[in-house]
């Protein structure tokens, strides 16, 4: 049994404020691309409700980028984080086409691929990733998740059309409807 570090996204809390997207750009001085994006879906069950989900690299259990890169620039660490080392990147874009989540993106400024590295340098210092640090509503967090749970993670039940074959290592807290309990006095 192994535990991996994963992003956890609470659909009850994300309000699509885009702070996570730009906090990353701010921290890494990125121009023109976002490592993290907030996607909006119309909910099937209620047309007035929209679901917002903040997604970057999902640091998959079965990361196709690792297998497909001819330069071996991707590595999956013991804690589950998939790191991309751009210094040897030749810009062949195989990973961009392979990833079902558009996590690797082509940085026109460097002519190399760029991807979320889970702020490993912060993780190694005991800090949270900068997007999590900046999330104003607490929708975005990180957690340790057993790899068996990642395997059986049912993302479809959250009404999100997320491809499962790479086994994305994320945890989605589903939107709850009308859940309340009362306290006395």
């Amino acid at each position: 049994m192994t535990a991996h570090i994963v992003f956890s996204i609470d659909l009850n809390r994300c309000i699509n404020c885009k702070t996570c997207e730009m906090a990353c750009n701010d921290h890494y001085g990125l121009m023109g691309i976002h490592r993290r994006n907030v996607f909006t879906y119309e909910s099937e069950s209620d047309e007035k409700q929209r679901l917002h989900v903040s997604m970057s690299c999902n640091h998959c259990l079965n990361p196709v980028c690792v297998y497909i890169c001819p330069e071996n620039n991707f590595q999956k660490r013991g804690d589950g984080i998939v790191i991309h080392e751009p210094s040897r990147c030749k810009g062949c874009k195989l990973c961009i086409n392979a990833c079902p989540f558009h996590a690797p993106k082509f940085n026109p400024k460097t002519n190399r691929v760029d991807k979320c590295n889970f702020c490993v340098e912060r993780i190694d210092q005991g800090l949270r990733p900068i997007c999590v640090e900046n999330c104003t509503t607490g929708a975005l967090s990180i957690m340790m998740l057993d790899t068996n749970e990642i395997e059986s993670n049912s993302l479809k039940s959250a009404e999100l059309p997320i491809a499962g074959y790479t086994k994305p290592s994320i945890n989605i807290l589903k939107k709850q409807q009308g859940y309340t309990f009362f306290r006395e006095g």
């Binding site: 994006n37 907030v38 996607f39 909006t40 879906y41 079902p100 989540f101 558009h102 479809k156 999100l160 059309p161 997320i162 491809a163 499962g164």
Partner: peptide, 16 residues
Amino acid sequence: MKISRRDFIKAGAVGT
């Protein structure tokens, strides 16, 4: 339910 890559892109249109 199987969701193809194309579906994901379509659904993600607002973000992209």
